[in-house]
Design a protein around this nucleic acid. Sequence first.
DNA 1: CTATGTAAACAAC
DNA 2: GTTGTTTACATAG
Length: 786
Amino acid sequence: MKTSPRRPLILKRRRLPLPVQNAAGETSKEEPKRPPAQQESGQGQASKEVAELNSCRFPAGIKIINHPTMPNTQVVAVPNNANIQNIITALTAKGKESGSNGPNKFILISCGGAPTHPPGPQPQAQTSSDSKRTEVITETLGPKPAAKDVNLRGQPGALPGQRWESCAGSEAAGCTLDNSLTNIQWLGKMSSDGLGSCTIKQEKEGKENRHLEQSQVKGNILAGRFLWLHSISTEFSTPPSVEEHPGTSTSCQDSVSERPPYSYMAMIQFAINSTERKRMTLKDIYTWIEDHFPYFKHMAKPGWKNSIRHNLSLHDMFVRETSANGKVSFWTIHPSANRYLTLDQVFKPLDPGSPQSPEHLESQQKRPNPEVRRNVTIRAELPLGARRKMKPLLPRVSSYLVPIQFPVNQPLVLQPSVKVPLPLAASLMSSELARHSKQVRIAPKMLLADEGVAPLPTAGPVKEEKPLLGEGLCPLLSVQSIKEEEVQPGEAMPHLGRPIKVESPPLEEWPSPCPSVKEELSQSWEDLSYSPTPRPKKSHSGLKSPARCVSEMLVIKRRERREMSRSRRKQHLLPPCVDEPELVFSEDPGTSRRAPELALPSESSAPASQLVYSQGEGGPFKTPIKEMLPISSTPSKSVPPLTPESWRLTPPAKIGGLNFSPVRTPQGPFGPLPDSLGLTDLSTTPLKNIPLFDSPRELLNSEPFDLTSDPFSSCSPSDMEVPKPGSPEPQVASLAANRSLTEGLVLDTMNDSLSKILLDISFPGLEEDLLGPDNINWAQFIPELR
DNA sequence: CTATGTAAACAAC
DNA sequence: GTTGTTTACATAG
């Protein structure tokens, strides 16, 4: 009731003590993978490794060399099979020891080493413990799996895992991150608890999701393409509860007595997405929730139903459809907003056989659950602790991708403190970096469409902007911080649009379709998703020229905001979800160049695409922002459209081998979706001709390489596993060009955060040679590595 | 301020 | 009574 916190637990950010967990037996599983014997007790080993590192001896062929240009930075070539975590730990320790004078930043490069073994490494985040600041960047040296890997997927055996592995370290890291990011443990309890229904349901869902899995996997891979920065802390942070109360987890009582950590919005989504048609009547929603969350059945006040209704009406993402005959109303999730979150996704069984045993993991992996699977796959490497229990929803958080140019000049390592709001981060980065010659730049905000929020583009440090944050970052940069809360995001990514709705009557286009419902929203959505055709409704947005629009928008927004604030009316989906990190592609190179601050809408060209909403859990959770309107096309200011979808999209792009990104991929569906969302648009349209990421590059390099090559290029089109052929993944192609960008991890011990960063290692001229998407030859840059 | 939760008034069935 | 929509208010962050 009142006393209880209103916010769902989920939202809270958890911090994990990373290290510890591993130690716990769980990790054992993973460990096996590791080749040599490194590790085991995490700490012990870590220390061991550290020692080694210090001495310059590294376990398996690890080589450390001083970074050519960066002070206090060393490049560590790590065999694929090496245990990244340990290495990170060691490096961290080393950094600490070194003190400010010594090397405190490390760039990890995976050398092809022996891909033989599975990815094992999982960087856990021990970093957190260290106080000193150490940054580690992981890069894949050898063959980057990226696109190629993807291709490989199909192949038998080893490949699947390996691909990822190739990235090994990085990947592992990524995995971990992912896991932790989303973790929600609560369910864990539930699962065991008594949600029998859950299980059942899961299976059911599993069905649905299965096909998705594949796609997701792909997505993961793809996702890799973009770099996300997130603080490890977040990522690593474990879910609060789960581990903490393991014991409890199972108790049924808890499930019954404890309120689920999910917001009504999330639960509604779970419910709706649990059906094949992705639609559900109010009553069924109630039933589903009661069945899956006993708390509501037994403990909650009757008012919870009112709250459900309230949420349905309030959030634009929920669209009411009327059956053909008009007699029955079904609630659906706007495709563009739907992340297809399901309880399954959120939940992970703690243990295999027994509910809590670790082994369970495997089984889980097998599970259909798409997302889960995705993660799982990757996760294999992760610490068990992380894996188990619930699957965290994606953090919506802000993620920022930061492109960094590596070798060339000074590589800059961003500190990703996640905490920093994207916008800020961006601004900071941009400014600072710039000053320094920064190699890292933040992508300009793009924006486009979004309108939404418009918060001011500028970077202002705005708090408000949270949402914006995402936006702020540009494509390249998106960093994710996990803010906490939200798990949401995670969740499921929707594929863009799923076609769900359609069934009923008319809805092809959401907006229109739903007659009754929230037109406003719908429009906005439309706008967003579709081209900018102006829609009446949102008058404000209209489409103005971008530039103008921006300013105007801002104004408008404010106004709206105010209005909104006054009354909570429906929350519109915001197109851009701010929180979520999406990658935005700026289509326009020119724009990209701009300062981050503005993102010009220039993209307008493709603007629409971006848009998208944000939501999902993230989005949804966050809900739509009320005010935003979507004009999608509009230029919005700053906000880059980071929409969840974007993520998804991005994934396709895959990044090189590393997959840090926590992003989830779409579940599957690549299918039909409504891509209307931006993705398609983006990818297809504009992208074709335009390099997706111009911006990044530009950002990164003052000197533009050729636009054609995008940062993401690393994957070749072929590589991409694009989930769907049909789907828009054109991006990929465009991406193909760029190989220079890669993901990296930055470990900031000072902040105890580990972030992913995008590294631009391209050197003019070298790209082709080196970069095969797969490989970057660091050796060229760094002789020592040879 | 935002996101969320809760309550309640109302309206349409 | 159910379903939906809106307002208003409370609370945590």
